[in-house]
Amino acid sequence: MTHIDDLPVRDELRGQSPYGAPQLDVPVRLNTNENPYPLPGPLVERIAERVREVARDLNRYPDRDAIALRTGLADYLNRTGGVELGVEQVWAANGSNEVIQQLLQTFGGPGRSAIGFEPSYSMHSLIARGTGTRWIAGPREADFTIDVEAATRAIAEHRPDVVFVTTPNNPTGNAVPAETIVALYEAAQRAKPSMVIVDEAYVEFSHGTSLLPLLAGRPHLVVSRTMSKAFGAAGLRLGYLAADPAVVDAVQLVRLPYHLSAVTQATALAALEHTDTLLKYVEQLKAERDRLVAELRTIGYEVTTSDANFVQFGRFEGPGGAHAAWQRILERGVLIRDNGVPGWLRVSAGTPKENDAFLDAARDLIKEQEHNG
C-alpha cells in the first residue's frame, strides 16, 4: 500500500498532521467547543421551510455573491457590534476556516509570511502552510497575554504580510484589549504594510465587546466570525468576515465559483431570523462558563480568565503531565481537550448536567493527586 511519504507532497506539508479533535463514545463530550444546546424547534421548522423553497431550484446555481445572506449578516453585526456596515463590507464562506484560507490565498502565499501569537488557534498555521505562506510563531507572556512591545518588535523584525490575533484566544480563552489591536495594526502598517486579521470566533461569549468598531479608518484590518459557536450551528459550516469593501473585492479573486450552496445560504438566513432566541442560549453558556472558572479555582486548579465558551485549567506537572490528567478524567466518562499546551487542559462549557459531571471528575482528580502526593 502506498504511504503518504511515497507521494510527491510539497516539502512544507511533510511530517505535518491534519487538524482534528478525536471523538470518543463517552457520556459527556466537552472537547470541541460546540454549543451543547440543540436548535429550538421553531428554528428547525423554519430551516425546513427555507430549504424546501430553494430545493425547487437546485438545478440552478445559487446566488454566487450571497447578497441576501451577507445583508442579513451585516444587519446582525450592526445590531450587536455597535457598527454601521453595508453588504459590501461583509463576506461569507464555508466556515471561518475557509474565510481564513481565502484571506491567505489573497494576501499570503509563496514568498510571503504570516505571524500569530502562540499558543493560539492551530488552524491559522496549518492553513498558512497549505497556502504556501511561511508561518512565524510570535511570542506570548507566561499568562498567555500578548506583550505589546515584544509583539511589535516581532512584527518589525519579520515584516509579515499577514498578522493574526485571536480574541478571545483559543485555547487559552483570554481576550485581547482594543488598544493592543491598535498598536499591532500600527506596527504592521509601519512594517509592510500588512493585513491584520482579528479572529472573533468566540466573541459573543466575551465579557467585553466586539472589536468591529476598530474597522473604521483601518482598510487593512479584517474581523472574522463564525456561526458555529454562538449560533449553535457547527454542522452548518458558515463563517464570515467584516472589512473594508476593497478586502471583500480582493477575496473574490480566489473564491471558488458558487462556493456557498443554496441550502447553506437558506439555513443561515433562517438562523439569523432567530438570533434573539439563540443569544439567550449564549447567556446561559456564559453563566456556566463563569461557574466552571469559579469552581475550578475553588477546587484548587489554576485557571486562565476566560471570555470564550471554554476554560483552560491546570497546571499539571509530574509524570504524564496534562495528558495523564486528561486520561484520568476520560476514565470518569468525560472527554475534554488536550491541546498540547504544556501543563494545561481545556474544557468546553456544556449543559449544567454535563458541567457537573466534569467538575465531579475534576474533584476526584485533585483528591487522587493529593492521595498520591
Rank of each mutant, 00 (worst) to 15 (best):
Y240F: 08
E302T: 10
A233F: 02
G138D: 11
T226Y: 06
T166H: 15
R332T: 03
F117N: 02
G320R: 08
W344K: 02
R346W: 02
S194Q: 04
L184S: 09
V311T: 14
S228V: 07
E49S: 09
G95C: 07
Q89L: 06
E84H: 08
E84Y: 03
N309F: 04
E368H: 08
L73I: 13
L292K: 08
D307V: 03
A93E: 11
V182H: 13
A74C: 06
A230L: 01
R70S: 07
L214H: 06
S120E: 15
T304E: 13
V248R: 14
N35W: 03
E88S: 13
A154K: 06
L241F: 05
L30V: 02
H323Q: 07
V162S: 07
A68V: 05
A242P: 07
Y76S: 04
R56L: 00
L296D: 03
V198G: 15
P245W: 14
I329L: 12
A268V: 11
A230H: 01
T180E: 14
R159F: 07
L126E: 04
S125A: 12
A137P: 03
P27K: 07
H207I: 06
I366S: 01
P168M: 12
Y202F: 13
N372E: 14
D5Q: 15
R56I: 00
Q284Y: 10
E45T: 15
N33K: 14
H323S: 12
